[in-house]
Design a protein around this nucleic acid. Sequence first.
DNA 1: TATGTAACGCACCAGTTAGTTACTTAATTG
DNA 2: CAATTAAGTAACTAACTGGTGCGTTACATA
Lengths: 225, 225
Amino acid sequence: MSAAGANKGRQDMSKAKPKTRDADATRARILAAAKQEFADYGLGGARVDVIAERANANKRMIYHYFGNKEALFRTVLVSAYVDIRTAEQALELDHLSPREALMKLVAFTWNYYLDNPEFLTLVNSANLHKGRHLQDSDEIIQVSRQYVGLVGKILQRGVDEGVFREGIDPVQLNITIAAIGYYYLTNRFTGSILFEREFMAPDRLKERLEFNIETILRLVGAENP
Amino acid sequence: MSAAGANKGRQDMSKAKPKTRDADATRARILAAAKQEFADYGLGGARVDVIAERANANKRMIYHYFGNKEALFRTVLVSAYVDIRTAEQALELDHLSPREALMKLVAFTWNYYLDNPEFLTLVNSANLHKGRHLQDSDEIIQVSRQYVGLVGKILQRGVDEGVFREGIDPVQLNITIAAIGYYYLTNRFTGSILFEREFMAPDRLKERLEFNIETILRLVGAENP
DNA sequence: TATGTAACGCACCAGTTAGTTACTTAATTG
DNA sequence: CAATTAAGTAACTAACTGGTGCGTTACATA
């Protein structure tokens, strides 16, 4: 009942425990399981016992590797931010026109949220707790600076080429690009009820992405498609 | 210790318990206290005992009036939606030009979130639980239809007068108006850390509202200010 | 004043839950 | 190969936590 039995319908990920001992692998399994559990139920709703079960590990190991529940959440959160910022940096936008670079970034942000919905609830949970778990993380600030720089560079190129208007704050643009995708997806459940439409239907998703690209292009002053 | 003692630093609202019995007042105090507690800690993190304390009521009364914790959350959530939709309907946008009506709506949405931050975490909590608590609420669907109609009417007037472009989906516009304010404010804690700026500083708030108005006006195709 | 009804409150329970203790087993090293 | 270190496990505990049983008190009405 303890190993095979699914608790509250939560399945473990298909990462079987290795025969031999492997500290790194165990740590990684715990981290992955914690990310899922925290994403599914929030920091308060997540259960340490369930994380251990999902990770196919012992609860004692969680405390051995991460200290306590809050520290585990902190590690999960930082890793989630590092992941998305790393993916963004790999985007190779320099060889594209400013307009196309921006379109690609909007699409990437949208698709990243779509493929990694746990990121959304993790961030929501972090903010419910007033960002406490992100404080004193130099790593986070470093990768965020790179991100702002990325958008700033596209913006500058666009202005130099005369296709974007001047004076746009890269941070405000960043926030807006994130907002128009994030809000739609994180509130997809209440949204589907309130607006009486299936937010996650493929056609609806495509429609929203196109709307978002249009929103951003018009914001920066690029001429219409 | 039970009446005066603040539990985990949560203060009761200054609504003292009346000497005489008053069912409506007690119910209202519980609802207000629950809204605060759920907003502060989410559905999972909220404590029924604390709600009772904050309401200056007995826990037994919560179960008497609302059934259980989830049903209480449902009532809080529906009331929060009804509140914002009611406030929107009182806006009297008909006598304004389409452009000014839209600006006023964007500003109103922003200020409502700012004045009622509990609305943001309540909605986040509802979506963490996959919108389960909003299902089967006809009331919610009714007021939402009115809201979409409100924006649709502004949009139509703008198209008729030739100041807005055609073919904009009122629902997508609605979502976008909400998104650009909601995201900034609900993620103000992580945002302030990531972007190394004080999201809630008065100047920053003003700046963001102006940016949002510009975003929406450019989206609908109104000429620049 | 008697009586029924609904508001109200205390004390408790059964099930959880984060964190710990004491122990076993595998890998590493001199 | 003996000794040391680190990985892993199960049982346990103290503090919670949602929910309830059961009795009390105020008020309306006859």
